[in-house]
Write a protein that binds this DNA or RNA. Structure first.
Lengths: 222, 222
DNA sequence: TTCAACAATATTGTATACATTAAAGACCGA
DNA sequence: TCGGTCTTTAATGTATACAATATTGTTGAA
């Protein structure tokens, strides 16, 4: 993506994630031009990219609308992700280098150090390290197909807000899974790594569904 | 996609599939404008869509290039597809309607009738019915996430040419799998349907790899 | 009052001119 | 002759004007 397109992409994406552009809202190119300070061409390019990343959907001759996710959609996505990430863990075991195993251990320890601190939770730091953990695994698989599929699944707004309201204990559980995966990969036990990963994702799903349904109820009660 | 964009998309896609635009070739927007008879805007839109469908890759400030697939990429894709399509078969078993089961049976019988005829193989007819078979299954899962992921995997040029050089016996084997899947779904046996589907895709992989490697050798010998 | 047809308007789709960037080639010096 | 830098050129990136289309609102008749 080029400069102007990237600028438009980020701005629109942020507005979707923050809720300024609500699910189902009609994003008009003219308004986005005013918002982004670039012309319609890069705005349109950004919208196309946002469509492939499932942030928005396009309807011919009608424009683009912020994507709406049903509870079933979200369940599906986590289920799919559990399967794909398990596959990643399994395949990583056969190709991963000692350096990569070490890097995984470092992200685990970095998160652990953060959790052991007193004071407020650094959720952004957690998200960053967590992302890095999964990225290293993905790289270790050396599989373009897996990488492409997962990027389609993981990127959408759903996941971006998953860990936002995690408690310290929940983050600890998550990081414990990371440790177990590292341990499994140290001895190249793909089956074990895959099992742990599956539990890891399914736990995330359970937590997410709880808070998601809770939010729904809160909104309905307003 | 709008008229002009769709026109450009189809034309460029056909030229890639036919080999006129070879893997790695640099597709210049100006030339595509001449080819398609539309302006650069829809050509660019089409190229973006072709990029999301993995027909081409985009490099910033350099343009788009026809995607090149390595043997490893192709293996990965089939492996992933085997897993995802198995998941489709399994989930379809729990949601599929009697009507959909019947439709699956019809596509099976249509292919069978074609195979029982004497005369040349109607490969296009097979591909069409085969596509329909998998589409019905996918619809029965009622899973957007699965549909999205699979469309990303199945659509690329790789698969489009898979069945091109199938023998009558190979098409028969493939259709036998379809029959077994229908039988499993009639009694809503998801596990069985998933198993058959896995074999179905892995068989396709084996056939494809054989002909692909054979082609490679032939080219190298030229 | 309701429905349908039509007109007005706003939005997306398309074409094209201009700006910016990267690749290719020429030129000069060592 | 080789290497590097500058110039040239051709491609992509961006902006904007124009065309086609869908939506909205209005008007008319039943």
């Amino acid at each position: 993506m080029s400069k102007a397109t990237e600028k438009a992409y980020s701005l629109i994406r942020e507005n979707i994630l923050s809720g300024t552009f609500a699910p189902g809202a009609h994003l008009k190119e003219g308004e986005l031009v005013d918002l982004c300070g670039v012309s319609r061409t890069p705005v349109r390019d950004a919208l196309r990219q946002l469509a492939t990343d499932r942030y928005v959907v396009t309807r011919r001759n009608q424009g683009v609308f912020v994507n709406e996710w049903s509870v079933e959609d979200i369940k599906d996505i986590f289920e799919l992700r559990a399967i794909l990430e398990s596959m990643v863990a399994e395949r990583a075991a056969t190709h991963i280098t000692d350096t990569q195993v070490q890097e995984l251990g470092e992200t685990h320890q970095a998160i652990q150090a953060m959790l052991d601190e007193n004071g407020p939770l650094k959720v952004d730091f957690f998200l960053e390290q967590n992302k890095r953990f999964h990225a290293i695994l993905l790289e270790a698989t050396r599989s373009r197909a897996l990488a492409d599929s997962l990027s389609q699944i993981v990127q959408p707004p759903l996941i971006a807000q998953t860990a936002r309201q995690y408690s310290r204990q929940e983050l600890q559980n998550s990081n414990d899974h990371h440790r177990d995966i590292v341990t499994a990969l140290e001895v190249r036990d793909g089956a074990l790594a895959a099992s742990v990963m599956k539990i890891h994702i399914i736990s995330a799903q359970r937590k997410f569904m709880n808070s998601y349904v809770a939010d729904d109820t809160a909104e309905a009660a307003e």
